[in-house]
């Protein structure tokens, strides 16, 4: 049984420059975040954490890959994680190009799987949508891409 936090408990933020840095930073930040959550007896279950981490990694990778042109050496990314009594929220901000339409996603395979024609890419956002309760994108007036991700905690209690 998880303890009931009274209010906002943990906030962590990183700012990175390259794709490799961005992914490394996300994994390090999450590891620290779960350590802090465990310290106050609010660590979600292992499966919950894997779902959240997997989804977050997809959105971070999506941002690092698609918001910036392929030759862009610097890909600034800010990531903030917050634990609330009933949910965990992640906010990702990049300074890349805006998403001009709904991002392309590949549907997860249904009953009949034809291996020869099985897509090899595009699952990322489908994974995020399947894992999280909220996946919301908006472009700020200042020219930033913002992704807000929310996963409720009670689902796994």
């Amino acid at each position: 049984m998880l303890a009931t936090p009274r209010s906002l408990l943990i906030e962590a933020q990183v700012a990175t420059q390259t794709m490799a840095e961005g992914l490394d930073a996300m994994h390090h930040l999450l590891a620290r975040f779960w350590e802090d959550a465990a310290r106050i007896d609010c660590l979600p279950s292992e499966t919950w954490r894997h779902l959240f981490t997997t989804a977050l990694a997809e959105v971070v990778a999506n941002g690092l890959r698609h918001a910036y042109a392929p030759e862009t050496p610097e890909r600034p990314l800010r990531l903030r994680l917050r634990l609330f009594p009933d949910r965990v929220e992640a906010l990702l901000i990049d300074q890349g190009e805006p998403y001009r339409s709904a991002p392309c996603t590949t549907n997860l395979p249904e009953d009949d799987v034809d291996i020869a024609n099985l897509p090899e890419s595009g699952y990322g956002l489908s994974i995020a949508y399947a894992s999280l309760d909220v996946v919301r994108y908006h472009r700020t007036r200042g020219g930033y891409n913002c992704w807000k991700l929310v996963k409720k905690l009670q689902q796994q209690r």
Partner: peptide, 15 residues
């Protein structure tokens, strides 16, 4: 366990 979660989520554990 993370890979197992990913396979289950994507239903790709069948292939």
């Amino acid at each position: 366990a993370q890979m197992h979660t990913l396979l289950k989520l994507t239903t790709l554990e069948r292939v």
